[in-house]
Amino acid sequence: MPDKDAGTPRVFLYRHGETEWSKSGRYTGTSEIELTQDGVNQVLASGKILVGAGKLIDPAKVARVFVSPRSRAVHTFQLAFTEADRQALTDAGKVDRTERLAEWGYGLYEGLLTKEIRALRKEHGLDGERAWDIWADGCEGEGGESPQQVTDRIDSLIEEIRALHQGNMHGENPSDVVLIAHGHTLRAFTKRWLGYPMEFPLSMMLEPGAVGVLSYQHHSIEEPAFLVGYGFPLEK
Rank of each mutant, 00 (worst) to 15 (best):
L120Q: 09
R130K: 13
T151H: 10
G47S: 10
G111L: 08
Q78T: 12
E99S: 06
E142M: 06
Y106C: 07
D176N: 12
G167K: 14
A88I: 05
A53T: 13
L120P: 00
A53D: 11
D133A: 11
D58E: 09
E172Q: 12
E123D: 11
P69A: 05
D127F: 07
D96C: 14
L164K: 10
T98E: 02
L50S: 03
G54K: 10
P69H: 02
H75D: 10
W104A: 00
E172L: 11
E83V: 15
V62Y: 08
H170A: 14
V177S: 03
T90A: 15
R86S: 12
G93I: 15
T90G: 14
D85M: 11
Q87M: 14
F66Q: 01
D85V: 11
A92E: 13
Q78V: 10
G54R: 06
G47R: 02
A92K: 12
E160M: 12
E140H: 06
L89G: 01
E172G: 10
A131R: 09
R130T: 10
V177P: 01
F77S: 03
G54W: 07
S175A: 15
D176F: 13
L120C: 04
V95H: 08
A119P: 01
L89R: 03
A45F: 09
D85N: 09
K94V: 03
A131W: 12
I49Q: 15
K94M: 10
S146W: 02
T76W: 04
A136Y: 08
P147R: 02
H124I: 06
L113M: 07
R64D: 05
K61Q: 13
N173P: 14
Y106T: 03
D85T: 08
E172S: 09
G143M: 05
S71N: 08
E110A: 06
I154E: 01
D127I: 09
Q166L: 14
L157T: 04
D85R: 09
L50D: 05
D133R: 06
V43K: 00
